[in-house]
Design a binder for these strands. Structure first.
Length: 434
DNA sequence: CGATCCCGCCAAACG
DNA sequence: CGTTTGGCGGGATCG
């Protein structure tokens, strides 16, 4: 059973007579396909300080095919560089694909995650609106609120294991609550869409459809981010993430696919500087840390695949991997299983208040004060980014917010919460509205 | 060798 | 029906 794929099989069969797909570049390189190596700004991209560094010629150094040149991360950077202008505001998918010199398919990938983070909004078929990085904070806030809300809903349930436990899947965002900012997300996104007063005559039409959206990259991105927004210890390995976002049923193959998707997402998020890849101190396991503030690559200009010379630290993937500077806290020494915050309902209450309040992070809350509200970089290169009315790290604050338990017992207790989480996350993912 | 993740087939979701 | 959107997983690359 297991509907799902089964079919496919396809077997790739790279044979696929190239034919006339790839525009330009018809050099049948030794290695497999090797379509085009061009890229480079076709249109008039900004040039700024480009030139400079010696050879202006792009990709003259035929080097065979490098996947790094076509990574989603790089593509995302280019995408941003291309559209993060003041005047830009409407984007056409085909146009983007053409300008960036990639297949349509890839644009969908980028766009989907960008929308999940609030940088874009879908207006209509083939048309997106650019909101820019200013849209991120709002989206984050929204995500966090939702996550918190859902969490409190079904966090402390007794045993309960197997899925399919009718659960009040919350849902939906409340829209227009104040009216400060015009917010971002509107329709689409967010799961659950029961049909109240469905159309006339809709016999037995279970909502089996939507299965597409459940697995969507957009939703996965949101859940991935939610993880960061509500978890203490800000580092997660994709493996853990997949396990968390996936139900208990750890279908090996299912997991593999999920991880693949997470890699994609992580790449894009990295290029946006929302997260960063790091090496777990002790473990050699690579993981990701939430950076919070989206920031555009300081370097303007497109970054076409850089020749094997001056790599200039890429978002990640290339050298330069901080060795995890975990908060100087002797906490969990046992293992770094992601622990979720979520303790007394009070804490949640506090957050709600904080969020509802709006800004002003001066308040002091109860017993635990914001210990490390300043999360500064590790003195890496000083990157001064002028942020318009920086939207604050209400987010950072929140993270450093949770009390530090020195009691191992409590730490242990969290383990159970993880269980609970898995449950509701599962529900949240496979939605089974009655 | 295992971790990473690009490519693009091909099927749902819309017109 | 043609298009647009986008799961999904083979398998090439990277480290």
């Amino acid at each position: 059973m297991d509907a799902a794929s089964a079919s496919s099989s396809a077997a790739a069969g790279p044979s696929s007579s190239s034919g006339a797909e790839p525009p330009a570049a018809a050099a049948v390189q030794p290695p497999k396909v090797a379509p085009l190596v061009q890229l480079q700004a076709p249109q008039q991209l900004q040039r700024g300080a480009a030139a400079a560094s010696g050879s202006g010629g792009v990709g003259c150094r035929h080097h065979a095919y490098s996947r790094k040149q076509k990574s989603l991360g790089l593509l995302c950077s280019n995408f941003v560089a291309l559209y993060d202008r003041e005047d830009v505001e409407t984007i056409g998918l085909d146009d983007a694909a053409k300008r960036l010199g990639v297949e349509r398919r890839r644009i969908y990938d980028i766009v989907n995650v960008l929308e999940s983070v609030g940088i874009l909004v879908r207006r209509a078929k083939n048309r997106y609106t650019w909101l820019g990085f200013e849209g991120v904070p709002a989206a984050m806030k929204e995500l966090k609120e939702r996550a918190l809300r859902e969490m409190s809903g079904s966090a402390v349930l007794p045993p309960m294991e197997e899925s399919s436990t009718a659960n009040l899947s919350d849902d939906e965002d409340d829209e227009k609550l104040g009216d400060a900012d015009e917010d971002a997300d509107s329709e689409k996104l967010s799961q659950s869409m029961d049909n109240t007063s469905d159309k006339p005559d809709a016999p037995s039409c279970r909502l089996r459809s939507d299965h597409r959206k459940e697995k969507s990259l957009g939703l996965l991105t949101q859940n991935f981010v939610k993880l960061f927004l509500t978890m203490e210890v800000e580092t997660v390995s994709l493996d853990e993430a997949a396990r968390l976002l996936l139900g208990e049923g750890h279908a090996e193959s299912n997991m593999r696919t999920k991880v693949r998707r997470l890699y994609d997402i992580a790449n894009v998020l990295s290029s946006l500087n929302l997260i960063e890849k790091i090496q777990q101190a002790d473990t050699r396991k690579p993981a990701f840390r939430w950076l919070g503030q989206a920031k555009r690559k300081q370097e303007n200009d497109f970054m076409v695949a850089q020749p094997p010379a001056r790599p200039s630290k890429r978002a990640f993937g290339t050298d330069l991997t901080n060795i995890d500077n975990k908060r100087g806290r002797f906490d969990s020494t046992t293992e770094n299983k992601p622990k979720l915050m979520l303790g007394a309902g009070n804490i949640v209450k506090s957050f709600e208040r904080q969020l509802g309040q709006g800004n002003k992070n001066d308040f002091v809350y109860g017993p635990f004060h914001p210990a490390v509200a300043k999360k500064q970089e590790t003195g890496d290169h000083a990157v001064k980014q002028q942020e318009r009315k920086s939207i604050e790290d209400w987010e950072n604050l929140a993270v450093s917010f949770r009390p530090q338990y020195q009691n191992q017992a409590l730490n242990d207790l969290f383990g159970h919460y993880v269980e609970a989480w898995k449950s509701w996350y599962l529900d949240l993912t496979r939605e089974t509205s009655s």
